[in-house]
């Protein structure tokens, strides 16, 4: 805490000095005149990192200054998100926000929320899928639900940390189906890959994660998708029925990722970044990349992204409280 305060102070001081030396107008006009950092709250090589890097590369092409992806990991996303929020709002530090920004504060891990950022644009959304072993006893979702009801507490599920988005998705689904959440205990894992490995090894029975995360094991014929919790089917998986189609119960949630800067980003800088990000989102490269990795495309700009987060925040608070995961 103290260190961050000190850093904020120092950066603010340097920023003020810079403005004083150069004069405010030239400062904004010249933007960007030096490399930009794009903070990613998750590790190199993962899905969020990949999105950050493709966006960073496309921004770099348009802005003409290096955009460096900086991985600030740890604390289930708190460290990176707080590094974005506490950076100087000069446009030289922006970051990738993930759904965790509307979850962490409900768990009491941080005070940070959507209000601490200048939202620039939402770039991706992925819905949760339910995955089981291909050679296991459950041929479809109905069979799985029957097994859960017949033996509450026996089947275990995994896919992320305790209280993570996929845990919440499972609880939400169970509640929509009028099954108490305790009927399927959650086994925390370090990520979807570890959870899937445990599923194949026979350590857990169900994995809840996003479709792209399960893709390689599905292609390998080891595991299968049972349903997707979304209002409509995933265009890349046209045969996979939604939860509502199968059970009539309505529940949808998911991960999303978007670009944002610290609070109070000056308007000219914001405009420049937004225009650049929109261009990146509409580019052929971005579309190709996202389709190739099965990532869902989704766009909303600036204030719309902000409103989206506020709405998501309220919804998340409600479902986390009812799931008993909020502090």
């Amino acid at each position: 805490m103290t260190r961050l305060t000190r850093r904020t102070f120092m950066t603010a001081a340097t920023g003020a000095a810079a403005t004083a030396t150069l004069g405010a107008p030239s400062f904004a006009q010249a933007y960007p005149s030096r490399p930009i950092q794009l903070i990613c709250p998750w590790g190199a090589g993962g899905g969020t990192d990949a999105v950050a890097r493709i966006v960073g590369t496309l921004l770099e092409k348009d802005l003409g200054q290096p955009v460096t992806v900086v991985n600030r990991t740890g604390g289930n996303g708190v460290v990176g998100h707080s590094a974005i929020a506490t950076a100087a709002p000069d446009g030289y530090t922006i970051g990738l926000l993930t759904v965790e920004i509307v979850m962490m504060h409900w768990m009491g891990l941080t005070q940070l929320g959507p209000a601490d950022y200048t939202p620039i644009g939402l770039v991706n959304e992925d819905a949760p899928v339910v995955i089981v072993k291909s050679d296991g006893p459950y041929k479809d979702l109905k069979a799985l639900i029957d097994a859960i009801k017949a033996n509450p507490g026996k089947l275990k599920a995994s896919g992320t940390a305790q209280g993570g988005i996929w845990h919440l998705a499972l609880v939400g689904m169970l509640q929509a189906l009028k099954i108490p959440p305790s009927a399927v205990p959650w086994v925390p894992s370090t990520g979807a890959a570890a959870g899937l490995q445990d599923l194949v090894a026979g350590g857990v029975d169900i994995v809840c994660c996003s479709a792209p995360e399960g893709k390689s094991l599905v292609d390998a014929g080891r595991v299968k998708y049972l349903t997707v919790m979304a209002p409509r089917r995933d265009p890349t998986l046209p045969d996979l029925q939604t939860l509502k189609e199968i059970t009539g119960a309505e529940y949808a949630t998911g991960v999303w990722r978007g670009i944002a800067g610290p609070k109070n980003l000056p308007a000219p800088i914001f405009d420049k970044l937004l225009a650049s990000l929109k261009k990146a989102y509409d580019s052929k490269e971005y579309k190709e990349f996202m389709t190739n990795r099965n990532f869902g495309m989704s766009w909303s700009a600036g204030p719309d992204f902000g409103a989206f987060m506020v709405k998501a925040d309220a919804a998340m608070g409600e479902s986390m409280k009812s799931a008993g995961l909020a502090k």
Partner: peptide, 28 residues
């Protein structure tokens, strides 16, 4: 390579690169 599950910190990064190149790991 076979299942897209990293064996260590280095291959965790490699898998990301594989995806990036459209070589989605897995038996396929």
């Amino acid at each position: 390579l076979v299942f897209g599950i990293p064996g260590d910190s280095i291959t965790a990064i490699v898998i990301g690169v594989l995806y990036m190149k459209g070589m989605n790991p897995g038996p396929t």
